[in-house]
Design a protein around this nucleic acid. Structure first.
Length: 182
DNA sequence: CATCAAAAACTCC
DNA sequence: GGAGTTTTTGATG
């Protein structure tokens, strides 16, 4: 159950982070802060939330997580490896969680192919499914699906806009020549 | 059953 | 080497 959504102001716009009692559940790109995401949240203007009964400790905990999220997001946006993550509360199928965890292991400045991720989770032919799992990733940046490329270093796709993928990789020092990594 | 952010195998230059 | 098309493929709603 999601409890609260908090903004992250960056040079690239306003990101939104959502938390449950277990940790970060979602991260939204500036443009994609969606209707769906707004629906169960604080009604703009009222200052009220749908879950007004948090203990003070929980609020403090979430704020502490949010601080970690904020610095991690900014680090990544600046092409720097983040030092610390908040706990990540994944929602998805076992396959998706396995795929996301495999992606978490890709260091900044490196890339893997959809095929390599598939192999890493023991399902070497589920390449296409890995692509779908990327699209279903609810915490972009922290789960670095932007570092997952198609075969032969081709750029592949990106749900929130390919320009983000190119830009993020560029900030990590990787250059594209057309739609292929050099 | 249809849809994918894939890949490999195949064709043609 | 490309740049196309076709076929195989597994997870998902």
């Amino acid at each position: 159950m999601d409890l609260v959504e908090l903004p992250i102001a960056t040079g690239d716009g306003l990101f939104l982070a959502r938390y449950s009692a277990q940790g970060l559940t979602r991260l939204y790109f500036p443009k994609s802060a969606s209707l769906e995401s707004r629906a169960q949240l604080p009604v703009p203007g009222t200052g009220k939330t749908t879950h007004p009964d948090h203990s003070r400790d929980r609020k403090i905990q979430i704020l502490r997580w949010h601080k970690l999220t904020t610095t991690a997001v900014k680090d990544i946006l600046h092409g720097r490896p983040p030092k610390e993550f908040p706990p990540l509360d994944f929602t998805g199928t076992d396959f998706q969680k396995a795929a996301w965890k495999a992606m978490l292991k890709i260091p900044a400045g490196k890339t893997k192919s959809y095929g390599e991720i598939a192999k890493a989770i023991g399902k070497p032919r589920a390449v296409r499914a890995v692509g779908s799992a990327c699209g279903a990733n609810s915490m972009p940046l922290l789960v670095p699906c932007h570092r997952v490329l198609a075969a032969h270093k081709k750029i592949g796709g990106f749900g929130s806009g390919l320009h983000w993928k190119r830009s993020l990789l560029a900030r990590e020092g990787l250059e594209f020549n057309g739609d292929r990594l050099t």
